[in-house]
């Protein structure tokens, strides 16, 4: 219906605004009473349309051509486009799209994080429960942690008589003298060496003490066979285990509540230096192993 009216009153579009206004005035003064509402509405639409679109000023074609020749059609403009490069007007749309995708993923990530956290909590609680029931879960995990250390296995310069005796006892039990330090801290006195023999191993040990009351010990053990070497447990605190290598022997240095322990093992032999001794002194003694 609307389309038919547009076609029916299309001729009114060709009239000027003044002419259309005169028609409206004539209609209001018409005494006949005819129904001219369709005409009036169409005229009003045309007038409204003309008001929305600003009237264009007539173009001076000659002047426009002259300006083009002067400002644009120049040698410097050769090959240049008259129009500015098109901005990525799509970019804001792309950014918005990416942001939208990220926002849509957030709920999924949040859900996954919750599941992971819940799973970890359940596993830890089960481990605690198992530990409480007697299973040494944490002990097993602590094979190489801050609390305990498991290990598969171990020079005579004006030395005291006790230390010479210590070296002799080593030889008697088929332990090379060269495995013992050839030096020890000068402020320590060597006590009488001890031997502990049983059916599984032989231990030759010597302790040292100084006037300050500090003591440390050197012990070298020879096991009867590799099959009977027991699983030894070394107490240590949270300090890192230090590996100190000298003369192709790698000693593990452990800290245990103020005491120090250096231990080395090779086959059926195991050597340990431990007690109230500084790290530097222990390393000096290790360096002297195999020396003269």
């Amino acid at each position: 219906m609307a389309q038919e009216n547009c076609e029916k009153y299309a001729y009114l579009d060709q009239l000027s605004t003044q002419q259309l206004e005169q028609l409206l005035l004539a209609d209001t003064e018409d005494p006949s009473g005819r129904d001219t509402s369709e005409v009036v509405f169409h005229i009003l639409e045309v007038l409204q349309t003309r008001e929305d679109v600003p009237a264009m000023e007539p173009v001076d074609v000659a002047q426009a051509w002259e300006e083009f020749q002067q400002y644009y059609n120049t040698p410097e403009g050769e090959g240049q486009s008259l129009y500015l490069p098109r901005e990525d007007s799509e970019r804001p749309e792309k950014d918005a799209c990416a942001a939208s995708k990220f926002r849509s993923r957030l709920p999924a990530l949040w859900k996954t994080a919750r599941i992971v956290a819940a799973t970890m909590a359940i596993l830890l609680s089960l481990m605690v429960g198992a530990q409480a029931s007697g299973l040494n879960i944490f002990g097993t995990l602590a094979q190489w942690t801050n609390d305990i250390f498991h290990f598969g296995i171990d020079k005579e310069s004006g030395l005291a008589e006790n230390y010479k005796l210590f070296l002799d006892l080593l030889e008697e039990r088929d332990i090379p003298r060269s495995y013992a330090p050839s030096q020890y801290p000068s402020d320590f006195i060597a006590n009488e060496p001890l031997v502990r023999d049983d059916d599984s191993s032989s231990l030759v040990e010597i302790s040292f003490s100084n006037p300050n009351g500090s003591t440390f010990s050197i012990g070298i053990t020879r096991y009867a066979s590799p099959d009977i070497i027991p699983d030894r447990t070394f107490e240590k605190d949270s300090s890192k285990v230090e590996i100190y290598t000298s003369s192709s022997k790698s000693f593990y240095i452990l800290y245990n509540e103020g005491s120090l322990m250096a231990t080395w093992a090779d086959g059926v032999l195991s050597e340990s230096i431990w007690g109230d001794i500084s790290s530097d002194d222990i390393k000096s003694m290790i360096d002297s192993i195999g020396g003269s």
Binding site: A117, M120, P230, R232, D237, S238
Partner: peptide, 30 residues
Amino acid sequence: SFALAASLCFSISFASENRASKTLSFYSVS
């Protein structure tokens, strides 16, 4: 969940630090 996991970690850490000994150095039994 986070608080539970954190408290369990603290208890494990506390238990681990107490395993060092002021008197014992090393030992073996078979």
